[in-house]
Each structure stands twice: as C-alpha cells, then as structure tokens.
Design a protein around this nucleic acid. Sequence first.
DNA 1: TTTGAAAACTGACCCAGATCATTTTTTACA
DNA 2: TGTAAAAAATGATCTGGGTCAGTTTTCAAA
Lengths: 235, 235
Amino acid sequence: MKVVRPSCPSCLTKSLSFFSDLDKFDLINLSQNKTCNFYKKGHIVFYEGRIPTGVYCLEHGKVKLYRVGLDGKEQIVRLSTPGSLLGIRSLLSNERYTLSAATLEDSVICFINKSFFFHLTNKYPKMNADIVNYLCNQLKEAEDKIISIAQKPVRERLAESLLILNRVFKPNGHSEIKHKISLPREDLANIVGTATETVIRLLHDFKDEKLISIDGRSITLTNINGLKHTAKVFE
Amino acid sequence: MKVVRPSCPSCLTKSLSFFSDLDKFDLINLSQNKTCNFYKKGHIVFYEGRIPTGVYCLEHGKVKLYRVGLDGKEQIVRLSTPGSLLGIRSLLSNERYTLSAATLEDSVICFINKSFFFHLTNKYPKMNADIVNYLCNQLKEAEDKIISIAQKPVRERLAESLLILNRVFKPNGHSEIKHKISLPREDLANIVGTATETVIRLLHDFKDEKLISIDGRSITLTNINGLKHTAKVFE
DNA sequence: TTTGAAAACTGACCCAGATCATTTTTTACA
DNA sequence: TGTAAAAAATGATCTGGGTCAGTTTTCAAA
C-alpha cells in the first residue's frame, strides 16, 4: 500500500464528488488534511466491524462493498466508482462498519478524517444536501435489489446485473463504445446472489443467444436490448 | 377515509418523531398546516409511481411499504410504526414514489405539505440530522435484508421476521409482555420473500418445536431464544 | 516459452421450496 | 346464530438452481 500525493485542486474526480463546491482555499486544505494510498487489486480498504475514523474517497479504480455470511460466502451489496465516498453511512450514523470494502482493480483511495470532514459539511450546506441525496439513492437501489432477489429468477437477475456492470465499468464518458466487463465469475455470482457454476452456465446460454460475447475471462455485451428483455427491465 | 383533527402539541407520538424539538409556536403551526385522516385497515396511503407533494406522518396504526412485481406478487420492504414519516425518501430525492403504502390495521395518518415541511427542516437543523440518521438506519436495514434473502434459507428468514415483527408489533413500551402478532400469512410470506404455503408449513413446524403458539390467525412467540437460534441471529 | 495455480467450465445428482388442487377453519356480518 | 367468503391448512408433484466432483482453460510469474 504505497502512499501517493494527488492534489485535490487538480483532482479529476473532484467534479463527480461531494467536494465540487469547495473554494480554492478549502481544496488546498483538503489536500493537506487527507492521506492518499495506492491499493493493489484485491486488497481490503476496511473490514466490517471496525469503527470508522473518517471517510474514504475513491479517486481511481473500483471497489466492492460486501458482507461475508456465516458459511463464508460473500454477498456484494454495492460497487463504487471514482468520486464515491466509502464508509460514509457508518460514519454519519456513528456505528461500526457493517460492510467490508475491497478493490476490484488497482485503485487510489484518499482518506479524510472525521473532524475535517465534518468541518467541511458544516461549512458547506450544499454538501449536506448532496449527502442526503446520495443516501436516498443508495436506499432506492438497495430496495430495488431486495425486490429483485426476492422475486426474479437467477437468469433475469444475471441479465440485470450485467447491464448495471456495463454502466459501472464503462470508461469515463464513452457510453457508446463497447467495452469489456472484467470481473471473476465468483464476484458476479456474489452480486447476483447465486452459485458460481450457475453464473457460468447462464453466461454460456447468453452467449449462445448472442446477447454477450465471451473472450477468456472478460465479457462484452453485444445485444443490450436483448439483455433488457431477458432481465424484464422496462424504462 | 374520515378527516380527524388531533393536535400536534398534544400528539402522543411527537416524542418518537422528528418533530420532538419544535417549539410551541411551530407545533401549533404544524397542527394548522397538516391534514389528518383516518384510514381503515387495508387501505392504501399512496401508490408507487405517484409524485409526492408532502410527507405522511403515521400517528396511530401500522403501515406496510411494498412493491408489486410483474406477476402481481407483492414484496413488503418495510413496516412503519407511529412516529415514522412515510414517503420521505422520495420527497427528499425529488422522485416519484418507488413503493406503495397500505395500512395493516385501522390507522390515523397526517399529511404535511412539502413547503411547510421544508420550512421546518430549514429552521431546525436538528431535524436534518435526525433525517440523515433515519436514512442511514433504513439503508442499513435494507442491506441486512439483501444479505438475509440472498444467503439464508426460508426457515431462518421466517424466524428472523417473526422476531422483528414481535418488536414492531409490541404495544408501547411493554417489551416484556407476550403479545400476539396478527398478520395474514400472505403478508408474512411477502415479508420473508416466499410462498404462503411455505410460511404455513414452517409455522406449523415452529409450533411443534414449541417456538411459537398459534391461536387462530394470531401468533405468539413463546421461545424467543429458540427463535434467535433457528434464525442464527447472534448479538 | 514453460508451468503451475487459479479460474472457468462440465456433468451428475439432489433437494428446498414453488405450484396447484383440495379441504378445513376462521371470521365478518346478515 | 347461521352462513358465505376469506384465510389457513394439507397433500401431491415438480423444478430451479445448489452442491460436489471432476476436467479444461487461462494467465501471470519464472
């Protein structure tokens, strides 16, 4: 875990994040009050059960938030992309982390301590409003997931998850370009809430149905509308 | 749906709610700015898809929040008890309702319009903090439910749900007294995320195992620790 | 370029829990 | 108090998808 020193005023993900309204002075301040680390793929950012002492800001890379069940099986609850704050829920409600976070690829993650973060939220009311909005969105997505897992068969859920991953894993701003989803089948299974073997079998079916193409470990969606149809997603 | 007129300053659920810090003046103001209705058991408070114009405050009774799937099967996402605000998530994130709300028993529910509600949240910063906390809790509970549905067998989930219902349906403050859970088996199934017949069979098993007693339609938990054990809940 | 460990894949088998059809019990209300 | 409709209960059957035990492929490091 290497220490790196990106500066906040020039941070590329700033515009995506909660810090977009900070003035120049506070951005420099933020730069000085944060610590920033490089995490190799697969490394753990924080563990469930630990007490938060601040908040993590994902600058580059991808992170999974998950919980490990009694039988050792993990359930991925959410994926995070650059600009997201990790662990903010536990910090705000003053509780231990209820999820663990691990990187899905090499990532750069900054850490901002509690007191400085709250100093900022107090100074910028807009930040508070953004945070409320963020929590609302997460709640909506969590409720969607409850309904999806409770009611839809695995086939539909997998199609749904592939569509979501396609959005999440898309390179910045290039929505039209076909890109690869590169995630172990096991992680995919832990997102969908099923067994790895079932994911593999269904991916094979999807390939036969020309919905996706598989190249080694990575997946490309070749028929988005077809997938929406099999996912029974209509909007 | 009868109009009733309980006064906010003397509202019994005030102390449980987000309005506990309002001064006398604003409580009287709130009384005058709200409309309050009596809803018979089973009636709908709001429908998924509608645009919120304010927020509902449950004064008396019980409410289920649910979504109906494509096949007509409903999934209950959450239950609300007196003092809760209904529909606040959609109001705050300025979206349509994503869930429907219906009463589980005769209830009294007040409605506070958007502008007056935001007037209050602006005036009382504590209200904002309480709301953030409330959202955090709901998010945590939603995430718990995702993991529970994805990983636990129905038997464990049913035991878990009975324990939660026992807390939710408990008469005010009397935690030690054994009371009846009176909820149709179908609703119970829609909470757990399973078929009604499966709930009935498992309740029968629980009865045989002396974990609960069944009296007609209502259920009493007779062995809380036993249920915790079958639910694999440890805290 | 080789190689060995990890990931992906395949096949066989099985069971938790869904579905459907029917009977019995409960409860609301005439 | 009787009765009809709703809810609960029971039985039979079926299947989606989990589990286990292997084989094959991929890929990163030597």
